[in-house]
Design a protein around this nucleic acid. Structure first.
Lengths: 194, 194
DNA sequence: GCCAAAGTACACAGGTCTGTGTAACTAAAA
DNA sequence: TTTTAGTTACACAGACCTGTGTACTTTGGC
């Protein structure tokens, strides 16, 4: 974990493969046999590293819970850049919505731990927006952060259904209007086109 | 079908129960045995009315595809009222997100017919916004309709995860800003509170 | 070379699921 | 009363799932 070029452990390989298949095909749709077969290991080995499928699911969601990289750019560029990044990811053919929202939709309100991590993730994203808005000195960073997060999640849901990266651009346009309405000056007006 | 007080047919009862359970617990989580047991009929009867579970799923989604009631209210009130209705539904304990988005998340890109009806539904909602925006004479009703739909889907996704009806109010606030930015005058400023 | 840890092969238990087959039953229409 | 359409009870096939047990083999460190 310290050394960056350390050889990938078996546990890493299992988690990485589970991540890809769970995300792409759905958690319920993928059995442990499929995962172990994909790696070319025995099912026994998988169960030697993860005590149950539930544990693997939990590890999958933790693995997806990554913080955005710190950036030196001005806050307003960071905020709007979020939607450019979204648009890029929408274009990728292996994009299939938000793993946390999907997991909640798939596993339902039954599994409380899944919902818990999903809430934590969404809130961490909202706080990321809020911190940058605070830096910009807007009047109500909490409320505006929530609204920006709505645009993010809305565009993700729309793209999941429509496969249309333009949803990210539409969200960006709306975000720009909300920001300007809050008194934020936007320097580079690369308007309709990304 | 013509007579409104016609006795509910067996097919109706099956569809109604399937609808409730599929939506609340998830499509993959509910088996045909569970549905027939809930109604108190044999599994055979269910299969006499629907040739397969897939057919039942398709009927479920068609059944969910309802158009909003026509309204006499001014367009701007209809648009903002959408978010009030959302807030009310978020408060209900049997609300569990958008059935179409959930179905796509659950069944994946595999099932093309599911995705097809989901796209049709989302587009029909967007067009509903667009028609009212056109009536209001805004400059670009297409783009604004897409943005409003983003707010709707975003608040639904957020509420699915957080169980927080305030998401609908946040979306309404953002919608108000977008509308005013497009030159729409909003008469009753029942601001932060619903 | 020796040993311990890790992985493999493979069967299997016990559960769930979709979908079918069949014979008996019920109720209403003719 | 007889026919007929719908329903029931129930077993079952065949598939897939999670998880375990066990004996064998590989592999890296000493």
């Amino acid at each position: 974990m310290a050394s960056p070029h350390q050889k990938q452990t078996m546990k890493d390989r299992i988690l990485q493969t589970a991540d890809r298949l769970f995300y792409l095909k759905g958690i319920r749709a993928i059995g442990v046999d499929t995962i172990s077969a994909e790696i070319g290991i025995s099912k026994r080995t998988l169960y030697n590293h993860f005590p149950s499928k539930d544990a693997l699911i939990a590890a999958y969601l933790e693995h997806r819970f990554v913080q955005p990289k710190p950036s030196d750019k001005p806050p307003v560029e960071q905020i709007l850049g979020t939607f450019d990044a979204l648009e890029r990811r929408f274009g990728a053919k292996d994009f299939r919505g938000c793993p946390f929202v999907n997991a909640v939709a798939e596993l339902g309100g039954e599994d409380k731990s899944v919902k818990k991590v999903a809430i934590a993730f969404k809130e961490s994203r909202r706080l990321w927006f809020r911190d940058r808005l605070t830096e910009l000195g807007v009047a109500d960073p909490e409320a505006l952060a929530t609204q920006l997060q709505l645009l993010v999640d809305g565009s993700i849901a729309q793209d999941l259904v429509r496969d249309d990266p333009a949803m990210a651009r539409a969200a960006k346009e709306a975000a720009r209007v909300l920001l300007e309405n809050a008194g934020v000056k936007i320097s580079s007006p690369d308007g309709a086109k990304a």
